[in-house]
Design a protein around this nucleic acid. Structure first.
Lengths: 194, 194
DNA sequence: GTCTATATTCTGATAGAC
DNA sequence: GTCTATCAGAATATAGAC
């Protein structure tokens, strides 16, 4: 297909999103200007508006895509015992979030910068993800395998604990990710198993 | 003592800090303007500079004071058994943070908006607080009372889990704070006790 | 101590040439 | 699709009157 001179839409679009992701995570949505994003990409600010109608839509797209990807990747194997499902969830959550530190940071920190409609949509997706873990805990509690007073509270507690790994884990650090996954699984297992 | 007409430094100062705390927590440091803070207090923007040299110092003062207050309040009773110290810490952390949702939010979300020197100072204070819990876990592990592979990791895991309460707990909600403290203490206890 | 007024810089977003 | 140029407004911070 013929292409206009100077056209780079097929590569500039992803580069805009990558730059926004990185800068929003590093400095915060409100602190980053469209000119900064453009500078990182290597275009002028006006060119960004070929890829997003405005700054807010750019943030929302990043958050929504992250949540959709998360929901798409979370392992759900109904036939497994709840304890095996729980272990899979714990290891998945740590691994998935470790691979996307910037997206995780934005997904948790920039909620207040979303317009009401966008916020509501993200909250629905987050609720679906939490429901995966809650179902596992509820099943395990129902069969007497888990000692969980309130599956909803336990869900929030476990997710907060696991997500915290992204705030301190470094690949160059003292521990491997596999080791961290082992330790967290060990703590979660003891906390919920009867 | 004589006082200039229109002088309100003794009450305006705290009001500036209270307004900044509230607005920073709600909208984020970068998204809040000095004019907004002034409007909340009921003065013009220029008047704020009688109480802070600049916006950054205002943020830093809020965070530092919060951390100092936290360190001042955390219960340390060396004579108690580690399990009792741990329970006291868990209940304290939830209770203290619940009473200061805005300060907690800022302390965790606005770190990236601190200048390097200010950031370093806050990190020192945070490290001291984490050290309190780490010491408890290390003592309990040393005496064989706790089953904790890595006290540093367990410290970060427990604090992340407990702090997460502030993101969802509401006084008007289904559960009382005391109930939540009970449930979290139960989970923490099972996760670390041998 | 607070006000008004202002200096200076930056902001998100748009228009039109190429 | 990207550029330059620009609009209209808002940002932090300061100066000087009262």
């Amino acid at each position: 297909m013929a292409r206009t001179i100077g056209s780079h839409s097929d590569i500039t679009g992803p580069r805009v999103r990558a730059a926004a992701l990185r800068l929003f995570a590093r400095h915060g949505y409100a602190a980053v200007s469209m000119r900064q994003i453009a500078g990182e990409v290597g275009v002028q600010a006006g060119a960004l508006y070929n890829y997003t109608p405005d700054k807010q839509s750019l943030l929302f797209a990043l958050m929504r895509d992250h949540m959709v990807e998360l929901l798409d990747a979370v392992p759900i194997i109904d036939t497994d015992a709840p304890i095996d499902q729980l272990q899979a969830f714990v290891r998945f959550h740590i691994g998935f979030h470790h691979a996307r530190p910037d997206a995780v940071f934005i997904a948790y920190m920039e909620l207040r910068n979303l317009e009401a409609r966008n916020f509501a949509e993200i909250e629905v997706l987050r609720g679906r993800y939490e429901a995966v873990l809650e179902r596992i805990l509820r099943d395990g509690a129902g069969s007497g395998m888990f000692d969980v007073v309130d599956p909803k509270i336990a869900t929030l507690a476990v997710i907060a604990m696991l997500t915290g790994v992204t705030t301190w884990f470094r690949d160059e650090g003292r521990l491997s990710l596999a080791n961290v996954q082992d330790q967290y699984w060990n703590m979660v297992r003891k906390a919920v198993v009867a």
